[in-house]
């Protein structure tokens, strides 16, 4: 999880949600929420702090946001091999 967060710093992220990994050569698209998570991950290595920052922006419980972020990072890992 931590490694994926660190690896996400290398991503080229477009405001359209198009994302390119310059190491694996993979590209994919994310929705608006995914874009917010990736932008935060560019500056934040600590998962808990990232979830706290998201909780300030979204009307959802910490528990719910934490579960969604973990699911997002798990999917992201598949693109960053």
């Amino acid at each position: 999880m931590k490694n994926t967060l660190l690896a996400s710093k290398r991503l080229a992220i477009s405001e359209s949600g198009f994302v390119f990994d310059p190491v694996s050569g993979q590209s994919f698209s994310v929705n608006e929420t995914g874009l917010v998570i990736l932008h935060l991950a560019q500056h934040e290595d600590d998962l808990d702090k990232l979830v706290e920052q998201l909780a300030e922006q979204f009307d959802a419980s910490i528990l719910e946001i934490n579960r969604d972020v973990q699911d997002f990072i798990y999917r992201l890992k598949g693109f960053l091999k």
């Binding site: 310059p22 190491v23 694996s24 050569g25 993979q26 590209s27």
Partner: peptide, 21 residues
């Protein structure tokens, strides 16, 4: 450096993207 993005039936690169690894 390059990652293949599409292959021919013979497994040759038909499309690819430059990478840095």
């Amino acid at each position: 450096m390059m990652k293949k993005r599409a292959l021919t039936d013979k497994g040759k690169g038909w499309a690819g993207i430059s990478i840095h690894d």
